[in-house]
Design a protein around this nucleic acid. Structure first.
Lengths: 200, 200
DNA sequence: TACAATTTTCAGAAATTTCTGAAAGTTAAG
DNA sequence: CTTAACTTTCAGAAATTTCTGAAAATTGTA
């Protein structure tokens, strides 16, 4: 397994970027390689191509499986395990997106929810609590939005992303549609003010 | 500067999460603290509250300024530099979002664009090139979408995120509007089926 | 200019993360 | 059951990142 310069550059770059997406350099490289390589690869091939130890490959594969980013295959008459990227580029992107939401957003929301339960002991804490409430609202909304997005099918996602400046018009449209339904003005103020968190 | 349990928990959590967002633990903590603390803080206060060295604080502040996440203030009659979070929670979220796009997506797009210039030497490379093209298309679209999002004002963003399942309907609406304009059917097939990756 | 207050820098220490490779574990086939 | 092919594990080594603190630089004031 010798990598072309092209593949090499791709793999190295995604190795570096990988850490941003929640895995380490070699895991990122393995994922990148499995992504551009159309044929299934086994652990030895990965180790050789990436010049890393067999043990490291084993751990990396385990992690990529936990992320549901790769699939196991078998070749008839060969006892080795072969792997490919799990699905199309879009599928993979969606999976990374979903997994990150689960691993990062959810725990944070849980913590913040908990922090919001105790009552502030003084003015200082009251103000802190307000901020925490704001962070919580923002993240919760993000979470729901992410949830919605990841339920859209490829086609709709594509459509949404392509909207560009059309998005503005669309939001106005929606507002006016809603206005018709509810009788509210199209420029609904959306309860923008300090709801305060005295939800107790 | 003694932190309440609440603040402590908040700060520690965002310290851990920080690395996901592109900065290290202490920078994450400093940012979290400046975010929940309404009054401006100086470097000594940060160092004391977070139990880290003065030098570390100095480096952290420099980084947070590079991210445009904090603002420098001065108190009359005090030569120390005081800092606050730069804007509302929404502003901060938007800033992190934008900075990450700049720092991660842009360089990747540049690399991929470059890789796509050279012509494949064999079948293997041709297939890799195809995959790279797909990744490129996806990331470019994401980039543009992110761009669009970060231009929306707070209110519209809020509106968009709140849409939830309304998003589906919205996309249909848009489709039909477009259909009227272009004469296409609203249920454009857009090659949705098992393209599988044997695109050969 | 002199000086004191404050911030920045950066070499090396400390902490953390990642990686290796040998040993242990697993599995299929005969 | 035995063996060989293969995979996983994990202790410690290596690499990387982060942090400290003392020295240097900067800045405002007198």
């Amino acid at each position: 397994m010798k990598l072309s310069n092209q593949a090499q550059a791709f793999v190295l770059h995604f190795g570096e970027m990988g850490s941003r997406w929640g895995f380490n350099r070699t895991v990122g490289q393995m994922f990148a390689l499995l992504t551009i390589h159309s044929e299934p690869l086994n652990a030895d091939q990965l180790a050789e191509a990436l010049k890393i130890s067999r043990g490291n490959v084993s751990m990396g594969l385990k992690e990529l499986q936990a992320w549901r980013l790769i699939e196991l295959h078998h070749q008839p008459g060969d006892r080795k395990d072969y792997f490919t990227a799990a699905g199309s580029i879009w599928d993979l992107a969606r999976t990374v997106f979903e997994e990150r939401r689960k691993r990062e957003l959810d725990p944070t929301l849980t913590l913040l929810r908990q922090l919001l339960l105790s009552d502030p002991r003084d003015e200082q804490e009251a103000q802190a609590q307000e901020k925490i409430q704001e962070v919580y609202s923002l993240l919760e909304m993000l979470d729901q939005f992410a949830n919605t997005l990841s339920k859209l099918d490829h086609k709709d996602l594509h459509k949404l992303m392509k909207l560009g400046s059309g998005l503005n018009k669309l939001l106005d449209m929606k507002a006016s549609v809603k206005a018709k339904t509810t009788g509210k003005s199209a420029t609904t103020p959306t309860a923008q003010k300090p709801t305060r968190n005295k939800t107790k």
